[in-house]
């Protein structure tokens, strides 16, 4: 190999200076518009509505105890909680199929022209705490229809068989946003200290009357 001239060696040293940022810039210019296009600026989520299946006669979920119960005990075994969104933004709350105004059937008046969801949540929390009471144990239900949650799903049991259930009814013209807000209020309550308490997560949407 012939020896390099001193002048050409000096030239080579000078050219190896700065990083060539052009390809990186090209990559950035392509990546950024692509990511802006697919970026989720409004975050979507799901609110699952899974009405309970009709009760069957197989009795595979601890119904054996019912046979030993007296008729009086059977009568109080259902809470029959109903939340009813009626006209003039009034919410009716009913328990034990009561239809006369009192402590088991009451109305929550409107708040600033809207349904008072905060009062409804507080009221349901009070029902859960004072009437339904503490959980009596755990049970589970088999979910084989949903591939994502296949298996036994545990849930709390209460002294009332329907201690997790609530029926939600509304007048026909009630907008979906109000229904979603109410469902949101029926599921959980978040205390001021950040604690979350389960209310009545098993919601059934039904028709009024």
């Amino acid at each position: 190999m012939p020896a390099e001239k001193p002048s050409s060696r000096r030239k080579q040293e000078e050219t190896g200076g700065d990083l060539n940022l052009t390809p990186i810039m090209n990559l950035m210019v392509v990546l950024i518009p692509m990511l802006i296009q697919v970026a989720a600026f409004t975050e979507l989520a799901l609110l699952q509505y899974m009405p309970p299946a009709e009760a069957d006669d197989s009795g595979d979920s601890g119904d054996q105890d019912d046979e030993d119960k007296t008729p009086d005990e059977e009568e109080i075994s259902n809470l029959d909680l109903i939340v009813n969104l009626v006209a003039n933004n009034v919410i009716q709350v009913s328990m034990f199929n009561t239809t006369e105004l009192g402590d088991k059937f009451y109305e929550i008046p409107e708040s600033a022209g809207f349904y008072n969801m905060k009062a409804l949540q507080d009221s349901l929390y009070s029902i859960k705490k004072n009437i339904v009471g503490e959980s009596t144990g755990m049970d589970s239900t088999w979910a084989d229809e949903m591939d994502s949650t296949k298996g036994w799903i545990p849930f709390k049991t209460y002294k009332y068989k329907d201690g997790r259930d609530v029926k939600l009814t509304a007048i026909g013209i009630t907008p979906f946003q109000t229904i979603i807000k109410t469902m949101d209020a029926l599921l959980f309550i978040e205390q001021s200290n950040g604690e979350k308490h389960e209310l009545f997560p098993q919601i059934v949407l039904t028709k009024l009357g």
Binding site: L44, A45, Y49, P51
Partner: peptide, 18 residues
């Protein structure tokens, strides 16, 4: 919902904005 239930679509997920 009734129609979905009748066709055995038992789980309904409503899309919402979080």
């Amino acid at each position: 919902i009734n129609t979905c239930g009748q066709q055995e679509y038992a789980t309904i997920d409503f899309v919402i904005i979080k």
